[in-house]
Design a protein around this nucleic acid. Sequence first.
DNA 1: GATAGGCCTTCCAGCGACTGGAAGGTCAAG
DNA 2: CTTGACCTTCCAGTCGCTGGAAGGCCTATC
Lengths: 132, 132
Amino acid sequence: MNISQVARQCGLPPKTIRYYEEIGLIRPSRTPSGYRSFSEADARRLAFLARARRLGFGIDECRALLDLYEDQRRSAAEVRRIAAAHLAEIDRRIDELRQMRAALADLVARCHGQDRPDCPIIDGLAGEAERG
Amino acid sequence: MNISQVARQCGLPPKTIRYYEEIGLIRPSRTPSGYRSFSEADARRLAFLARARRLGFGIDECRALLDLYEDQRRSAAEVRRIAAAHLAEIDRRIDELRQMRAALADLVARCHGQDRPDCPIIDGLAGEAERG
DNA sequence: GATAGGCCTTCCAGCGACTGGAAGGTCAAG
DNA sequence: CTTGACCTTCCAGTCGCTGGAAGGCCTATC
């Protein structure tokens, strides 16, 4: 299987797959002319990676998960620990965005949005709120 | 006012302030020996930038907002447009994270987390869910 | 056998928004 | 006059790709 075929199968762009090889996440073999040749096992690894990335795991977490994926003696506790840590990180990010959202939505709601210079959004960013 | 003083005032690290000068967001004057010298107006711009960045606006959006901040003939409609677009972007990001969260939380909840190899999280990443 | 065009390869550069660190100049205090 | 805290510039690295250039390979058609 060449790179564009496996790319179609796992939903990752060829460029990304080359990059994953560069950082050691996969090791496809090569044809005599130098083309990458992907086995079914390579395709499975890539599909696994694509799913893990879609869930927001970082590359290093993916590397650890991939090791566990192929470790027959793995401990589910270790997998769970990584996943739970990532879940906590997602929650942290959601909270951060929610706080941004609340502050920004408040400013937007107070702005009349007309063709005049007086603007509560600008005033808020300028720090006017702190004085009134 | 030198860089560390203004940094303390606006809550941005000196490195970031230098970077903001490099990309043209501020133009502090210089002392004869080459030190940056920040006016009150510079400090206000930096405080404005710090608040806009905390609300998640990108550098280019900050640039546009800063122009509007100092434009006495600005239109609140234009400010509102930028802010509303950013609000929509934040909502999009929150949705994305929520979807990740839901999928990941489901996997974590199904994992017993014991010292055994059978693990619904790994199975889910491997695509087992699709077959059952 | 020539040619076209669609694949493949490598390498280099750039994104956003900083951040770290090295090498060296300046300034105030003692 | 030295110390140490500040300041300067410049270069490299972060993360996870992504774009593009230059060139090789493979298949089909004429």
